[in-house]
Write a protein that binds this DNA or RNA. Structure first.
Lengths: 342, 342
DNA sequence: CTGAAAGCGCTAACAA
DNA sequence: TTGTTAGCGCTTTCAG
């Protein structure tokens, strides 16, 4: 492995000069050229490990996500990656699998590897602990979910508003018993989407002069919790359909559970648009679905891009107060919520 | 940041001893315990950067894939990750986007970061160049595709056998005119799968006493090339359906094209199992499809797992001759090939 | 079994 | 502008 010293010798300059050539220091063009030629000839590439050790700052950022197989997170990852390219940072993708332990392992690796910073889509709102990083001054940005009490920048989605808009849309289209398949309790996105659903449905019921005390009953009856995975969505949908008074529409709190819900509906001989289906988050491979699916579209790519931007600001040492950026969702109306048959 | 020296001082031993405690050197239990307690108290974690510099061997392996949004590769990535965990290696995921330039950039980063090794799903069979790594002695394993002329271990899939088995299955189920939507000409995986189809169909036709010279005609007529994407599959399927004597089944050479083919069929008012559909590679979100889809399953996870195993052998310095591991595919029979209506 | 000491390759003061 | 020098935190001989 050729080092900076080999190049220095070959070019007849000092190692410091070689370093300067590679880091934008002031060097006379003539010598700089000599150095570059020597480096080229010897096939020299600066040893980033040595550099990191010396500068106390790596050129890698960690991205910790709970599910690498969920298209939402891969798209987010692309956003991070594209943004990072611009500053010559590379991205290490760490899959926590939604497990707090695995996540902790990765976070401590980030520390030990002296990464430049970390972007985290937390596995748990209550149990993910970012303090080990922030205490030691490592820049951290939370994305999609913000762990409780963490004092870090965050880029989030306006879940509550999205959930409310979705529910209002279903009501406006004439569905009367709108159910909700919510995410896991304790996950912030899940709770916010659920809150949006509640507000939206409450308003709709009031508009129909449903008595206040019945409203709470209805809300409780029509809500099920899933695990943000296909199987959970299927099970929850099946339960809802088994209700004495089953729903005629469902708001599903994430994309994978929507896939499961659609399966359960099909098995029961039901389907959109007679039974309204609205997904929070686009469903992968939507072309496979007929009728086309109404969904709350999430800015997954921008989430990643924005988070990476904030992180780079911190890495560059810009001292701003903590920021929380909230990105809006967009309701994409398609055919699965066309309204129940008359 | 607390260092090994801080711990040494606190425990009243030398830094060397602390190092030994953390690396399985021989230390008397009593002192080891003292060191561990001190480390615990100070919240010490060994600086991996310094260690890498010193030992000249990092604890990160790079995984370069052409498309992070393709489920095939994310599954492969999980395989790599799980295997790496066992040796305490972490995995850096690098997305080349199928671009040789981006790929080259990542490969040189791998070198500069002194990674322990690299697993590459090459962006191009002809233009991906691994020699920069192998020349400098960095362990490299090719996965899914082996770049031409690279002398590295490789883990591949038995494409030809899979194609043949698929076609035989369709014939056995009673389909008479079995078409093929092949991949792009010049791509090795595409050609191997096509060859499998040809062999399989030829055998089936012979069994039906179709004259040899007609067989070639049939093969030519019933084959279309697509681009491994949804739209290509749809177009190819549409062409096949427009034939004077259209097929009654199709073998589609990759997952995305299958999605397109299914769309085209639906538009024509056709569908499995009357029209047999068999996909090479599982279709993402297969649960969305009714009837369920028969597919040649690719061992994507095992591909990653196996590649990581080979890489670890190399990293550990085991000197074996170069290996090429070929993993078998498995035909997963489901409902889309139940056979044509009587 | 333990400690002292010498770097791994690079960068950042400081002098020249 | 350039070179000299002193480490970054760790591992690893080599003596003891």
């Amino acid at each position: 492995m050729t080092t900076i010293n080999d190049v220095a010798r070959a070019a007849g300059v000092s190692p410091a000069t070689v370093s300067r050539v590679f880091n934008g220091g002031r060097v006379t063009p003539e010598r700089a050229e000599r150095v570059r030629r020597a480096a080229e000839e010897l096939g020299f590439a600066p040893n980033r490990v040595a550099r990191s050790l010396r500068t106390q700052r790596g050129s890698v950022i960690g991205l910790v996500i709970p599910d690498i197989e969920n298209p939402f997170f891969t798209s987010l990852a692309r956003g991070v990656e594209d943004a990072a390219q611009q500053t010559n940072l590379s991205v290490v993708l760490c899959n926590s699998d939604g497990e707090v332990d695995k996540e902790r392992r990765y976070l401590s690796i980030a520390l030990a590897e002296h990464m430049a910073g970390v972007i985290v889509a937390a596995a748990s709102r209550d149990r993910t602990d970012l303090s080990a990083l922030t205490d030691r001054g490592m820049p951290v940005v939370a994305v999609d979910r913000r762990p409780r009490g963490a004092s870090v920048d965050a880029v989030l989605v306006d879940n509550m508003h999205g959930g409310e808009a979705a529910t209002e849309h279903l009501a406006a289209r004439g569905y009367r018993r709108i159910a909700c398949i919510a995410g896991p309790p304790g996950v912030s996105t899940a709770e916010e989407r659920l809150a949006g659903y509640r507000d939206g449905l409450r308003a709709a019921l009031r508009a129909r002069d449903v008595p206040e005390d019945e409203i709470d009953d209805v809300l409780a009856t029509l809500t099920r919790h899933g695990d943000y995975r296909v199987e959970g969505g299927r099970a929850a949908m099946a339960e809802l359909l088994a209700l004495p008074e089953p729903p005629d529409a469902v708001f599903v709190a994430n994309n994978l559970m929507t896939v499961g819900a659609l399966q359960a509906l099909r098995e029961a001989g039901l389907g959109p648009p007679d039974f309204g289906v609205l997904s929070f988050g686009d469903v992968p491979w939507a072309p496979l679905i007929t009728p086309s699916l109404t969904a709350v579209e999430l800015p997954s790519y921008d989430l990643g891009w924005t988070a990476a931007g904030l992180l780079q600001d911190r890495i560059a040492g810009r001292k701003k107060p903590l920021q929380t950026v909230v990105l809006r969702t967009a309701l994409r109306v398609r055919d699965s919520t066309a309204g129940p048959r008359r």
